[in-house]
């Protein structure tokens, strides 16, 4: 073997290491799948309220002229407990309207969950069958969407909003959607 091409394996390997290093150090979770909804109109599915006699979720709720957050949660979901504090702060300090969708949950259990931890939601609706979850393309709970004033999905947060995710991800996305 002669000539410059003895360096070929080395060059290919250096490129490979650079790629994997970038992927490793980059801010990514390989298990996360990008949402196909971002940049499109939010699904308009009418859902019944969690509280008996409460107001249902109607398409107009997602076109309020101000950004709204849609949060899928469930009483059986442990990470949802972990992010609940962030949601309380979002609704309290930051005055952002949040719509909660209790995903594949029993109404009584979801109510008990909110009673125990506090209710950050502007409106809470029930998705007992998981039909809305399919419409929104959630792969599990919790998942959180930022919807702009015109009903367009601007951002999807995969997994719980914990750590600095509220400051570094969700709030900037809400600001950008204004």
């Amino acid at each position: 073997m002669r000539g410059p091409w003895v360096f070929l394996p080395l060059a290919a390997f250096v490129a490979l290491v650079a790629l994997m290093g970038a992927m490793l150090l980059g801010d990514r979770n390989p298990a996360e799948v990008d949402s196909a909804l971002v940049g499109r109109a939010a699904p308009t599915l009418t859902l019944y309220a969690l509280e008996p006699g409460g107001e249902p979720l109607v398409p107009a709720d997602l076109r309020r002229g101000v950004p709204v957050i849609v949060n899928f949660f469930a009483s059986w979901c442990v990470p949802c407990r972990a992010e609940h504090e962030s949601l309380m702060a979002l609704a309290g300090e930051h005055k952002v309207q949040i719509i909660g969708i209790a995903y594949k949950d029993k109404p009584a259990a979801a109510r008990a969950f909110l009673e125990e931890l506090g209710n950050p939601y502007d409106k809470v609706v029930l998705d007992e069958s998981g039909r809305a979850g399919i419409e929104w393309g959630v792969s599990g709970v919790p998942e959180t969407f930022v919807i702009d004033g015109d009903g367009m999905v601007r951002y999807r947060h995969w997994g719980p909003v914990v750590g600095d995710a509220l400051e570094t991800r969700l709030l900037p996305a809400v600001e950008a959607a204004r």
Partner: peptide
């Protein structure tokens, strides 16, 4: 791998 491939590039000829 980098060291061994460098060695290879130097010595293979």
């Amino acid at each position: 791998v980098g060291a061994s491939l460098t060695l290879f590039a130097m010595r293979a000829p």
